[in-house]
Each structure stands twice: as C-alpha cells, then as structure tokens.
Design a protein around this nucleic acid. Structure first.
Lengths: 149, 149
DNA sequence: TTAATAACGTTATCATAGTAACAATAATAT
DNA sequence: ATATTATTGTTACTATGATAACGTTATTAA
C-alpha cells in the first residue's frame, strides 16, 4: 500500500507569500505615514488616491475602482469623513447615491502624502529591477484573469 | 512658479496590486474549501499547514513560523480548537507556554485539504511560467529583506 | 534572595474583509 | 399604474490584523 499523501510547502506557496507581503507592506506604509504625523492606513490611502484622480463618484463605483465592496467602502469613508478629509453629498437625481468629494483638507493631503508613499515604495523595492517588476505585474494580471474564469 | 505635485498611479502601485491579489486569493481559497464542505479560512489553512509540518510548537513560535503575531495566533487557534482540529497542552517545565497539537481529526484533514489547495493554486497560476514564478518569489524575498533594514 | 526585567498568552480597541439582511429608492414588466 | 425586481448604502456578524495593556510565570541583576 503506497502512501499517496502529498506535501504542501507553505513557505513556497504563492498565496502564503503574497499574504505575508501584503501585511508587511501595509504595516510599513502605515508606520511611514505615522512617523510624519498622519494616522492613515493603507486602505484609506488607496481610497484617497482614487479620489485625487476622480472625485464625485458614488460609493459603489468608488468601491469598484478600489477593488473593495460596498460595506467596506462605507466603513473606510466613515473614517475619512471623521478625519475631515472627505464629504458625502446625496445625488439629487438618484437619491440612492452618495457622491464622494474631497474637502480642502483632503485635497491638501495629496502633496504631503504622495512623497511619503513614493519614498516608501522606493525603500521596499530597492534592488528590484524594472524587468522583475514587470514580471511581477504580469503575474498579477494573469492571476486576476484566472480568478475571473 | 512651477507645480511640483507628483502623481501616484494607484493601479500601477505594487502595494495596491499585492493587496488586491491577496484578498482575491484568500476569498478564492475559502470558496474552494467551502464548496467541498470545509469552512476553513486562508489563515487557518496556513496554521494547519505549519502544524502538519511541525507539531508541539508553543504559540509564539507558531506565530513566528506563520508570520503572525501572538494575538492573532490566539484567535486563529481559538477557531481551530472550536472546530476540534487542534488542542493546547500547557508545558510542564515552563507554565507560560502552550504547546499546540493536532487532534486525530486535524491530522486527517491533511489528506482532504491539500488536494483542494493544490488544485486552487494550479487554477490561479495557470499560464504563469516557472521562470515568472521564480521572479515573483525573488521579488518577495527582496522586499522582505528591505523591510528588515 | 529579593527586586527588576522579560516572555507568554489573553483581553481590549480599532480598522479591514466577506457575507447576509435590510430600508429606501429606482427601474421594469405586465 | 401598480407589482415585481434591482440597486444603493447601512447594519450585523464573524474573522483577520496592528497595537497596547495586563496577569502569570521565568529570568536576571543587585
């Protein structure tokens, strides 16, 4: 009788690697912001970033644009609103919609946070070649495609 | 007066990409297990996997071995214990330590879950070459190294 | 050999995430 | 035109994740 059990080498498993990486990068970004006096999480950063690109989206669209769900967007916006960075305005034509806008404070944040984020990215990916980064992104696109099949 | 504002292209940002990827992979793995009748999250899976490799570690060591913190380990073990997959035994020599062991049920799970996880990984990384996966892992190692500097 | 320090696991708090359910509103189907 | 269906945002529940505080137990320093 042969043993057919297979091993699953955790440390070599893409899912495990990616999860560790995501966690550590989030924590690192958070600490980088914090050191400069900003209490902003990676997810809040992602939403702010999208808003700097395009304001006035309603919550569901904004969620789509940041690969989150509606519930999550509600929560993140609650944080950003409490901090005075964004405000919601009900759409006059479709009362179901909340359109999201940056406050003056939220807009000003852009100039302060982006240099920190750029520096953080440079620190984390120091020594990684452009070619490797391209592969990295290509694998990402492939996996996303496979997820949708 | 020149405008020195810089852009931060979110969709091209490694941190954003990796976070999306991690989330979607976790959800996919969870659904794969679920379809086969197992309510096991990606994190619980990671801990079980480590236990199949090495039993009897105490919680802090186990946390280190799965890149988690002590608090998190307490919570995940609570889930696994409630499901009857693991048990904790207090160390006789050092009463601060809880050593973690698999139950018979937890051991048996190995043969059932691993094929599902392997199939899931194959599905997700279909079309990704071995060389690209190597680059992927190399970038990961580099980032982890940079994080520790 | 006490006193200070450190390590372990737990609890608490807040912020993501997935899922499900819900009220309010809009779109549609007959 | 009214009844059904769909969409939006919120709430609830559970599970991760970072951080901090705490009691218990070991270690160390004096």
């Amino acid at each position: 009788m042969e043993k057919i059990s297979r091993v699953f080498p955790l440390d070599n498993s893409p899912g495990y690697i990616i999860n560790s990486l995501a966690r550590e990068m989030n924590a690192f970004l958070y600490r980088s912001f914090r050191e400069k006096g900003f209490e902003i999480t990676a997810q809040q950063w992602a939403v702010l970033n999208r808003l700097w690109e395009m304001e006035g989206l309603h919550q569901s669209k904004l969620a789509q644009q940041t690969t989150k769900n509606r519930h999550n967007m509600t929560m993140i916006l609650k944080q950003l609103e409490a901090k005075g960075f964004i405000e919601k305005r009900s759409d006059a034509e479709d009362k179901r919609l909340n359109r999201v806008y940056l406050t003056k404070r939220g807009k000003a944040l852009k100039e302060e946070l982006i240099p920190i984020a750029i520096k953080t990215t440079e620190t984390l990916f120091r020594g990684v070649s452009i070619e490797d980064m391209e592969v990295f992104k290509r694998v990402h696109r492939m996996v996303i495609k496979n997820l949708k099949l």
